[in-house]
């Protein structure tokens, strides 16, 4: 064997180690798009809130005995649309990237990525629903940021390191949204909008553009 063969061996070892333990087909561009959906959504939510003339939506209450008024339902519908659009975009673009890299999107490491991401995320989602039905609106935005951030940190072991920093940023923003709760929509837009655009663009430049 020549030196080139040894080099090739080492390269293959390294590639197989990362390929078998990490999902590298996560698309950066889908992060940018998800961020843009979130920003558009936050803009529309702000418009809705102003149309209803509630400066602080946490004080809005619906008809007696039923906490979910028209505004809450509209905001929930809006959030559902953003989440669904982001998930579909993420799957489509990551599948495309996986195909380009000659890999499958659905494999052992992406399954682990999804499971570890979902545990905090589903917990947070259920908590948000419980709070909505109980009529506690105050902490919904920070809870979304916090649990999403923890999902990212938890999932980051199985994909790019950047996802860890994205998660940590979301956690910090979540805590700030809880403290400055009058501007929680702003922090929500910063976290789900601006952060996704920034980190997505960074990942796109680092890993996708070739």
């Amino acid at each position: 064997m020549e030196t080139n063969d040894y080099l090739k061996d080492l390269k293959e070892i390294k590639e197989m180690m990362s390929k078998s333990s990490q999902t590298l087909s996560l698309s950066g561009l889908s992060g940018v798009l998800a961020g843009l959906y979130a920003l558009a959504g936050a803009g529309y939510a702000d418009h809705l809130l102003q149309a209803y003339e509630v400066e602080d939506y946490s004080e809005s209450r619906g008809v007696i005995g039923f906490p979910l008024d028209a505004l809450s339902l509209q905001l929930m519908g809006l959030a559902t649309v953003i989440v669904l659009a982001s998930i579909v975009t993420g799957i489509v673009l990551s599948a495309k990237k996986a195909k380009k890299m000659g890999e499958t999107l659905w494999n052992a490491s992406s399954r682990r990525l999804l499971i570890n991401f979902s545990i905090p995320l589903v917990t947070g989602g259920l908590l948000v629903l419980i709070l909505l039905f109980k009529g506690y609106y105050e902490l919904i935005a920070p809870i979304m940021l916090l649990f999403y951030g923890m999902g990212c940190v938890n999932a980051s072991k199985f994909t790019f390191r950047d996802v860890r920093y994205l998660g940590l940023t979301q956690i910090v923003l979540g805590l700030m949204a809880a403290y400055f709760k009058d501007s929680d929509l702003l922090f929500w837009a910063l976290g789900f909008g601006v952060c996704h655009v920034l980190y997505g663009a960074m990942m796109y430049v680092k890993y996708d553009r070739n």
Binding site: D9, E12, I13, K14, M16, M17, S18, S20, S21, A108
Partner: peptide, 14 residues
Amino acid sequence: RLGIMSVLMVNDRV
């Protein structure tokens, strides 16, 4: 064989 070992170095059970 190199590949099998690489995978098993970073994953507990495969």
